[in-house]
Amino acid sequence: MTKKTLRLSFPQWQGGNNPPYHLGSLLLSFLSPEARGPVETVPVALPGAEPLNEVDGITAKPQLLRQLGDATALIEKHDPDTVVVLGGDCLVSLAPFAHLLNKYGEKLGVLWIDSHPDVQTTEQYSNAHAHVLGALIGTGDKDLVSHVRHKLSPSKIMIAGIHDPLDYERDYLASHQIATSGPEQIKAGGGEVMEWIAKEKIEYLAIHLDLDVLDPALFRSVLFAQPGRGEHDFGDVAEGKLTIEDVLKLINQATSEAEAVGLTIAEHMPWDMINLKNLLSALPLMK
């Protein structure tokens, strides 16, 4: 039986408090192949349209909860078997992955392809895009966690491409016994990922691809490739080390053993397009 795939355009930028993620999401929708199933867009206010206030230690929490509710409603409207999400910042995975957990339960594994584990809380960081995986597990802000009825078992997670985690992140991963595979392991063949799929008897995969797992010297549409950036402008957090070929090989390997039912592409930062957009708006006869 053919499965219904919902394609969700989700230009959320408030979770990372970074307006260019809005344009990044729109460009992903423009560049993607034509959808064969339903397509929905989560309504997201344009940057600058409303103030972003910090509530309960989370930047723009009212907007994020509204968008989370809207995304959940759109997903429930279609009750899809599979979901593609074109983000936006990393928080866009919360509602669709919660849906997939309800549908597939312990047969679902989450392959989180990212330089960072996204398990922080308000005690470490106010931007909720770094809280999303923790919320799926059931830790962090209660209003985010409340949207996850079937919590994600830590053993069903593989974080691929991670390196140099912060002390809190390292302790969290160790205490929850979350499997990880670093860039060099991925480049060497990704055997740890395949072993995880077999060990956990994973039949279905929800794949979260944060584009910042890619080497910013080779793929320029990520945060860390900001033109003119200084060496320490991003707090010395981990920056991507993988190539597009590394990521595609990993995903193809993983989906040869478990069926892909979820795919998020997040944190597209198209610097050249942003700068070109600004140029166009400043030129004579263009306003």
Rank of each mutant, 00 (worst) to 15 (best):
G105S: 03
L108W: 08
L65C: 02
E106S: 12
V85M: 14
I75Y: 07
G88E: 06
V119C: 14
A73P: 02
L94S: 09
D79V: 02
D70F: 08
N127G: 05
L74P: 08
Q67C: 08
Q124C: 02
Q120F: 02
V85Q: 12
D114C: 01
Y125N: 06
D89E: 11
L74C: 09
N102T: 05
V83M: 11
P62C: 00
G88F: 09
H129S: 02
E76S: 07
A95M: 07
L133V: 15
H99L: 02
V83L: 15
L65I: 13
V132K: 13
L86W: 13
A128V: 11
E76C: 00
S93D: 03
T121I: 11
H116W: 01
V85N: 09
H131D: 04
D70C: 04
Y104E: 05
A95R: 11
P62R: 09
L64T: 05
I75L: 06
V92W: 07
T72E: 11
P62S: 03
G88L: 10
H78F: 12
Q63G: 06
T72Y: 02
Q124S: 09
A95W: 12
D114Y: 06
V110N: 05
P80C: 07
L108Y: 09
G69W: 00
A95Y: 10
T121P: 06
D89S: 06
W112L: 01
K77E: 09
H131W: 07
W112C: 00
T72K: 14
